[in-house]
Design a protein around this nucleic acid. Structure first.
Lengths: 131, 131
DNA sequence: TTGCTTGCAAATTTTTTGCAAAAAC
DNA sequence: GTTTTTGCAAAAAATTTGCAAGCAA
């Protein structure tokens, strides 16, 4: 029989979770770690990774790979896209609304089951573009 | 003064390049390595990485990150998208044509310079979806 | 011959994991 | 008191790099 795992609310979870919730810069685990350490100086990077993993599994944040091998974390769950600056590396949320449409009917007709999708846009952000 | 680097056509380059050109399964460096080794048993993984990097820089192939931290390589340069199966991990090229429209005008108006974009679609491929 | 490229191994970078101690419930 | 979570350190996974020797031009 499966025993239920009762998860606990630790101080680390609270702080890490809060840190990501208000950070829309798409930070990496390392960046979150350095921010969390200002509040909990003894937190370990392993705990940050485990907690991020837990939050992803609980569907509270998403993990992104945007053209590099480092994972970034995003607290925004609503359907949106990402702009990645080729010069400074900054990632911005992009809300294209009805300026962006993808009709999956042809795929579905071929037998694919579509669950989610995302658009990654590469280029130069405002400050980088004008120099 | 910049001296021009005259690149050389080695056997390794030829074999690795040919291997990717005909492989549309979006292989990782490790997978390409094991295929190339059948022809050049003494090739090293480092050479595979260096050669892939060179081909990417020369614009002959593209490097993709599709929701995981391993890079995959794609010989198809024409504008297309990718379907990633959540169950088996397979990546397929997807040609949505005019069933897919992204209008960047609002972004451009905000000062972004758009150079490229891509759509990643997640779900189940045909065999995985029907089981 | 010149100097780019390779193989090998060691180093880096990013993330995961084992384990005893600490914290939550 | 029991079970989950943590910190630490070591391990793993993916990629890069230094260097002497090999090979292309």
């Amino acid at each position: 029989m499966e025993r239920e795992i009762r998860q606990r609310t630790t101080q680390q979870l609270t702080v890490i979770s809060a840190a990501i919730q208000r950070d829309h810069s798409h930070p990496s685990a390392e960046e979150i770690y350095s921010r969390v350490r200002k509040v909990l100086p003894h937190v370990s990077l392993g705990t940050v990774y485990r907690t991020l993993q837990r939050l992803v599994q609980e569907g509270k944040i998403q993990m992104l790979f945007l053209g590099e091998r480092t994972a970034r974390y995003d607290p925004t769950l609503a359907e949106h896209d990402h702009f990645i600056c080729q010069r400074c590396g900054r990632v911005e949320d992009v809300w294209l609304g009805r300026n962006r449409q993808v009709n999956f009917a042809p795929l579905v007709k071929e037998g694919f089951t579509v669950l989610a999708h995302s658009v990654a846009i590469h280029g130069f952000c405002q400050p980088c573009g004008r120099r």
